[in-house]
C-alpha cells in the first residue's frame, strides 16, 4: 500500500515539473528571445528563417553605452544612458514621495474614521480609473502655464497619479490586517502615538509597504504617455527614449533588444532585493492574531 502511494506520488510530481517547464517556456520565451536578439546585428535578426546559432556581437550594447548609433544613413546621437538615468530618477523619486505621503495616509484611512474618509480614499483610487490621455491635454496646458512642463518636479508630481493610489490602497489593507492592540500595548507601555506608528505599525506592515513600493516602481518605470507629452529629450525616460530606435533607415531591432535588456535590469534587481522582504512578511504574518 505504502509503496504504491510513493509511486502514485512520483508520477504527479513528474507531471507537475513538466507542466512547470511548459509554463516557464511560455512566459520566458519572449524575454529569452529578446536577450538573444540583443547580441545579434540587424541583418542576423532579419534573416529568414531565423537561426538559433550565430556569432554574438556586443555592438548593440556598445552603441547604447557610447550613445552613438551607426546606421546605414550615418551616425546618430542616442541619449539612451541618460534616458535610463531619467527613468531611475523619476521612478525612485516618485515612489519615495508616494511612500512618504501614502503610508501615513494609508495608516490614517485604516485606523481612524473621519468625515469623508472613505470618499477621499476612493477619489484617490479613482485616479487609476481615468485614462491618462483624458487628463493629459489639460494637464500639459496647466504645466506650460505653471512652468512645470519638462521639469523633473512636474513629472514626479504627475507620476503620483500612478504611484500614490497603488501604495495607499495596498498599504491600507496591510494596516487593517494588523491588530491595533499591538500599537495600543506599545503606547500603554509609555510611548507616544508617533513612536507607535514608526516603531510598530510601519515595521509590521513592512512587507506590504515593500510590495506596494515595488509595484509602484514598476508601474512608474513602465509609464510612457505622461513622459511622452510632458518631457522633452533630456528628461525622457527609456520608455519614450526607445522611440529613437525607429530611424529613417529602419527599425534597429538589435538596439531595441539591448535597450530592453538594460532597462529590465534595474527593476529585476529591485524585485530580487525586495523578495527577501516579501518572504519575511509571510513569516511575520503568521504571528497575527
Amino acid at each position: 500500500m505504502a509503496r504504491s502511494d510513493v509511486r502514485a506520488a512520483g508520477l504527479p510530481r513528474f507531471l507537475r515539473a513538466f507542466a512547470l517547464v511548459l509554463v516557464l517556456i511560455f512566459f520566458l520565451f519572449p524575454i529569452a528571445w529578446i536577450f538573444l536578439m540583443s547580441f545579434q546585428s540587424n541583418e542576423q535578426i532579419l534573416r529568414i528563417p531565423p537561426h538559433l546559432l550565430f556569432t554574438p556581437t556586443l555592438m548593440n550594447y556598445r552603441a547604447l553605452i557610447s550613445g552613438k548609433l551607426i546606421t546605414a544613413a550615418g551616425s546618430l546621437d542616442l541619449p539612451f544612458m541618460r534616458n535610463l538615468g531619467n527613468s531611475a530618477l523619476l521612478s525612485a523619486a516618485s515612489v519615495a514621495l508616494s511612500l512618504l505621503l501614502g503610508v501615513p495616509a494609508a495608516y490614517a484611512f485604516a485606523r481612524f474614521r473621519f468625515r469623508l474618509g472613505e470618499n477621499i480614499a476612493f477619489t484617490l483610487l479613482s485616479f487609476r480609473f481615468a485614462p491618462p490621455l483624458l487628463v493629459l491635454l489639460p494637464l500639459s496646458l496647466y504645466f506650460q502655464e505653471l512652468g512645470l512642463a519638462n521639469t523633473y518636479v512636474g513629472l514626479i508630481w504627475v507620476y503620483q497619479l500612478i504611484c500614490l493610489p497603488l501604495i495607499l490602497w495596498i498599504v491600507r489593507s496591510y494596516f487593517e490586517d494588523l491588530s491595533p492592540d499591538v500599537e495600543y500595548a506599545y503606547r500603554v507601555d509609555g510611548h507616544s502615538w508617533w513612536r507607535a506608528f514608526t516603531r510598530i505599525a510601519i515595521p509590521l506592515a513592512g512587507p506590504g509597504i515593500a510590495a506596494a513600493g515595488l509595484l509602484a516602481f514598476i508601474f512608474a518605470w513602465n509609464n510612457f504617455v505622461f513622459a511622452l507629452i510632458l518631457a522633452s529629450a533630456d528628461k525622457q525616460p527609456v520608455t519614450v527614449g526607445a522611440l529613437a530606435f525607429v530611424t529613417a533607415s529602419g527599425i534597429q531591432y538589435g538596439q531595441i533588444a539591448a535597450a530592453i535588456v538594460l532597462s529590465i535590469l534595474p527593476t529585476l534587481a529591485l524585485a530580487l532585493y525586495a523578495q527577501r522582504w516579501l518572504v519575511e512578511g509571510l513569516s511575520l504574518g503568521a504571528v497575527k492574531g
Binding site: A185, I200, G289
Partner: peptide, 14 residues
Amino acid sequence: GVSMAFEGYALYPP
C-alpha cells in the same frame, strides 16, 4: 500610568 493585558494578546511579534 496604566498597564494592560489584552484579550487578543497584542504581543510584539519580532
